[in-house]
Write a protein that binds this DNA or RNA. Structure first.
Length: 228
DNA sequence: GTGCTAACCTATTCACCAC
DNA sequence: GTGGTGAATAGGTTAGCAC
């Protein structure tokens, strides 16, 4: 049963979808006044011409129609207010706009899909931008390291260590789980920087990077209540 | 636990429309 | 004619409910 009380399982699913229009909510013998009606006839007429005659007897078939700008604006306003559609709002919009409740629901489904696609695009752009910034910073640091190395060479101090800092830039990370009584289960990230090591835990990371999750500069202007 | 139903999702199809 | 867009379909998943 769908949202309009239509049963769709009374017919077996057809492999080539030639009967698929029978599952279409808007094939309604009695109701033909809704906009956006669609009846897929092509395959049906070829396969079952006698049924086609019956269909013509019971109702006019309209082609798929786009929603009017007024309908779109109203739906868009509603979507901006709340991304999910509750049954009461669906019925209200249905009456207001002269559309089937099923059409309202489908519009919201498609709209959510489009919104999600846009979000992914924005996220991609944001991550790309961040990557570029970080790459630039990395390059600057590498340049600085080379510069400092050159200075060390000039000073004749080539041990690779000056005032507690290592000059190697390659970093290896390993992860271990502590099994001692006090630190049981604690995850340690160990960074091997050149010849020296330093350790920190996930807790350390969280404390010092509490705002590490980036805020997107141009997130779509839709409600944030949506929890997929 | 199982079956049923409603609502949702993603992927896809297909009609319309602008170019 | 063709590509973009959006309405609609197909099929799958999940949550809630009754048994």
């Amino acid at each position: 049963m769908d949202w309009n009380g239509n049963t769709k399982s009374f017919l077996p699913q057809h492999a080539d979808s030639s009967l698929s229009f029978l599952y279409n909510y808007n094939y309604n013998y009695n109701q033909t006044s809704y906009q956006g009606m669609e009846v897929k006839q092509r395959d049906w007429i070829e396969t079952f011409p006698e049924m086609d005659k019956m269909m013509m007897k019971y109702g006019n078939q309209e082609k798929k129609k786009r929603l009017t700008s007024e309908q779109m604006e109203s739906l868009e306003r509603s979507f901006q207010m709340e991304i999910k559609l509750d049954p009461h709002r669906k019925m209200k919009l249905s009456k207001e706009l002269g559309l089937q409740p099923r059409q309202i629901a489908i519009w919201f489904q498609n709209r959510r899909a489009r919104w999600k696609t846009k979000q992914l695009e924005h996220l991609y752009d944001s991550l790309k931008h961040q990557f570029e910034v970080v790459s630039k910073e990395k390059q600057q640091l590498q340049d600085e390291v080379l510069k400092l190395k050159g200075m060390l060479k000039e000073q004749g101090c080539c041990s690779g260590r000056v005032q507690g800092y290592y000059t190697e830039v390659s970093v290896e990370e390993t992860e271990t789980v502590e099994s001692t009584s006090e630190g049981k289960g604690k995850i340690h990230h160990e960074f091997n920087i050149g010849e020296g090591n330093c350790c920190f835990t996930i807790e350390d990371y969280n404390i010092h990077n509490s705002t590490v999750v980036p805020l997107l500069p141009y997130w779509p202007s839709v409600p944030y209540s949506y929890q997929p």
